[in-house]
Structure formats: structure tokens, C-alpha cells
Design a protein around this nucleic acid. Structure first.
Lengths: 259, 259
DNA sequence: CCCAATTTGTTCGTATGTATC
DNA sequence: AGATACATACGAACAAATTGG
């Protein structure tokens, strides 16, 4: 770890000390190639190394913790530990970016329409029977038409979960994250607004039909068919949303997402 | 703002106090519909409201600051202010998610190949002449073949900047962010690894040719042509990268990105 | 079950830095 | 320049959580 940075008057600190300490620790992690689970020096040692007060060091650790990069534990054997940023945390942080941005449902669907067909094409013929079975099991959760608004809501979300599960099977971490992010975002909207109301059974049934056919195409290893089905599915769903109010709900994503 | 949360023994605090304070402030922002620039209560008042020590409150503010949600200013009229999360901050935070994930260049290109053609199609015929001119000006930055590795590097990045600028013109905030994120990620890799070396002038020249044709298609309002050109462009670029080592560099994205 | 050691978590008082008027 | 209002930083003491004997 680098020695304590003695501040000179000629070099005014743009950032606060905790921020600079946090940066230094990050750099230190990179240099040493620290991995998740590795322990950072404890508060006491950091205080000594950086020659700063306890509160300052603690704020620095909080910064890293807020970004999901470390976790702290009390007690013997405790300390500050490198932590892999969780998908939930990453999604929540990215969600903050859009909080003031009036992201619309149409924009989310534009992304899904670009991504999911390619996901389907990439997965065709690559999935194990158990994986395909699991997808079909998900579909079965909304086989029969909903009778209440509450059930409609549940089925709506369950249907989004299908896409999240499909994405989970991708080998592309970026693709996986983004499709799950969008599905989760739409679930949030489904809950906080009444996206399931009015019901619109017919269009929703067609959505389920697309998913059934998609699994068949995936099983058959027909990439082109999978792509076409998901394109049509996304187009239909987008149209379904067309009547909905366009502005997305103002809400910070919770740390515990739906999926 | 809610009154100070008196902790009961039946309700054990999973999260630390600063974390809970940060959550409470976020919720408070949502409830009151606070906007960027709005001032939160100062430290003194927060201490009183939450009945917690100064350091605790400060750590809470640091958490929000690390997430990019607030900024603080000292002096009279200073305090804690709501802040719209910047694109740079969001990109850096999302980048952290992939730090331990061994994201490959191929995965990034898979995403670009899905997104950028749709971006092009959506922008065809929608851009003002000045915007199109600006794109052409960017291309002119790497018109002549590079003579040194340094120049090759610069041109490589400039070429990525073209895509970032194109994305900037999208009305879809999500699309805008993601394309710029991937372009920025590739720029990082270009710099930290020697992606421009060996040169491979021929393939790179073809890339520039695609961009020239793209601008023409955008000007003509030919969405299908724009989509096709970008598909071919991405395929070519992906192939160009095929020989490259697959693992992406281990590095935290700096707060100040290339673009 | 309790006790002791270890490590983070929290408090409070004081002092310093910084921007505004 | 000086007064004011605010965040920033320090340090010492104490509290809480966890582990092991």
C-alpha cells in the first residue's frame, strides 16, 4: 500500500480525503490482483498507513461498500473484505442513473427488441434438456387465464421471469445482465403502476404462445426460428404497452430485485 | 423526513446505521419528489432528525455521494444537494460489476452487433445536417493511414468515438448509455492492451469505409441500408478482434472516461 | 453459559478549512 | 478584512458483534 499522501499546498485536493483513500485502496486492489474474499488491512492499520483519523478511513470504506466492492464483518477474523459486485447492486446503481431521466417503457422495449432475438439465436441448440424443462415449467405458471387482477399481476411478472431465466442461460455476462435488468425494470413498473390492468387477455395469451414456440425452437436448435419468434414476441409486447402511460415510475430500485 | 428510528430489540438491524440513514434519505427524496439541485437538510439538522452522531450522518452522506446521488458544498449556502447521476459515474459503477467477471471482447461485440444496427435504423432521416456534418468531421480524424503505432492508437480510439457520438444522437437514453459504455470499454482496452498493434491497415480502412457509407445512408433516410451497413461493420470489427486475447483487462474504470 | 479477545460500529467535543457576504 | 455558516477532519472513549476457550 502506498504511504500516506502528505498534502502540499501547491496541490489542492479536489476530492475529499475519504474519496482519495477509497481511490488509493482500489488502485491497491488492482496492483496486487486481490480477489473476492481477500482481506484488506483493518481500520487500525489503514489509519496508520494513511495517517488519517478513524472517521476518515471509515468514510472511505463506506464509499467502497456503497459501490459494492467490499463488505465488512465485525469480530475476530473480521475486517474489510474484497467482494464481487452483485448483480442486484449493479442493477440498483445503474437504475439510479435513470431515476431523473424519464426512461419510457418504449425505450426499454426498443432495447429488448434488439437484444432478446439475438439471445435466442445464440442459445438455440445449446441448452441442456433440464434447462429447457425449467423454461417450460416457468411457462406453466401462467397457463390458465387469470381470474383476478392480483393473479393477472402475478402472471405478468412470471412471464417476465421467463425472460430473466432465459437470459441467465447466456454465456455472455453483459447480455445476461442487461436482459435481466430490463425485465426487472419492467417488473418494477408492473408492480408500482397497474400495467396488468386492464387485463387484455388475448394479447397476453399470444405472448405465452410465443414462449412455448420459442422453447420448441431452442430444443430443435433452430436459431433463425428462435430469433424470429422473439422478434415477433417483442413487437407484440411493445404494442401491448403502447396504450400505457409513457413515463416510467420515479422510484429507486430496491437492493432486492424481483428475480 | 421521518422521525429518528428508535431501534427495538425485536427488530435487529441487519444494515449499519449509515446505510439505513442513506436509505431513509433516498426514500425521502422519492416521497417529496426532490429534483437535482434541491438542498437536503444540513448535517446539523440531519443529526437532530435522526438522533445520530455527526460521523454516522457523514458516512450516510458519503454512501449517497459514492452512488452519485448527491454532491456536497462547503461554506455558507452550502450543504448536501440532490444530483443527477452522471453518465460517467454510472459507467464506472457498472464497470465495477464486470471487474471480476472476465468479460471478453467478443461479448462486448455481441452486444454492439445487436444494438448499433438498430440505432442506425432509428436515426436514419432523423438527424439534422449539422449532426451529420459532425459525424463526418469525426471520420476525417482518421482519414489518412497511420504511420506510427501511437497514431494508430489515436485513430482506433477516434473511430470508437464516432460510435459514441452517433449514440449521443439517439433519443433512447438506455441505448445511448449502453453504446457509449461499450465504446468506452473498448477504448480502455485499446489503451491498456495494445489492440492497435499489429496495425492491420486494410481491415481498419474498411471500417472507415463503412462509416462513410453509414452517414450517407443516414442522410438519405435509408433505415434498412443503415442497419445493414452497421451489421457488416460490426461483423468486420468483431473478426478484426478475433485474433486478440480474449480476456478483458482487469482495471477499474476511471471516473473520467475517454469520451 | 459465560468470559475474554478482536475487530468494526458509534458517539461527542473540538478544531480546521472553505465559501459567501 | 472580518464575520458567518457550513462541511471537513481529528482523536479519544465507549458500544456492539463475533469468535474461541
Amino acid at each position: 500500500m502506498p504511504p500516506a499522501t502528505t498534502r502540499s499546498k501547491a496541490d489542492p485536493p479536489r476530492r475529499s480525503r475519504p474519496q482519495r483513500v477509497a481511490e488509493a485502496i482500489k488502485q491497491w486492489v488492482v496492483e496486487r490482483g486481490l480477489r473476492p474474499g481477500d482481506r484488506l488491512p483493518g481500520e487500525a492499520e489503514l489509519i496508520e498507513r494513511f495517517a488519517m483519523a478513524k472517521s476518515t478511513i471509515r468514510e472511505a470504506v463506506r464509499i467502497l461498500e456503497a459501490q459494492g466492492l467490499v463488505k465488512t464483518r465485525t469480530g475476530p477474523g473480521g475486517g474489510v473484505f474484497i467482494h464481487e459486485v452483485s448483480e442486484e447492486r449493479a442493477a440498483a446503481l445503474l437504475g439510479n442513473y435513470f431515476y431523473f431521466k424519464t426512461l419510457t417503457i418504449g425505450e426499454i422495449y426498443e432495447l429488448r427488441r434488439a437484444l432478446e432475438p439475438e439471445l435466442g439465436a445464440a442459445l438455440a441448440g445449446k441448452l441442456a434438456p433440464e434447462q429447457l424443462d425449467r423454461l417450460e415449467a416457468t411457462i406453466r405458471n401462467y397457463e390458465s387465464p387469470a381470474r383476478t387482477a392480483e393473479e393477472e399481476r402475478r402472471q405478468h411478472i412470471e412471464s417476465l421471469r421467463f425472460h430473466a431465466r432465459l437470459a441467465e442461460m447466456s454465456e455472455n455476462a453483459l447480455m445476461r445482465f442487461l436482459i435481466r435488468f430490463t425485465a426487472n425494470m419492467l417488473s418494477e413498473i408492473t408492480i408500482t403502476r397497474g400495467l396488468y390492468d386492464p387485463p387484455n387477455h388475448e394479447l397476453w395469451a399470444r405472448g405465452r404462445d410465443y414462449q412455448v414456440r420459442l422453447v420448441a425452437a431452442l430444443r430443435a436448435g433452430d436459431a433463425d426460428a428462435a430469433r424470429d419468434i422473439l422478434r415477433a414476441h417483442m413487437d407484440t409486447a411493445r404494442r401491448l404497452m403502447e396504450g400505457q402511460e409513457d413515463r416510467v415510475v420515479r422510484r429507486f430500485l430496491p437492493e432486492t430485485p424481483i428475480f
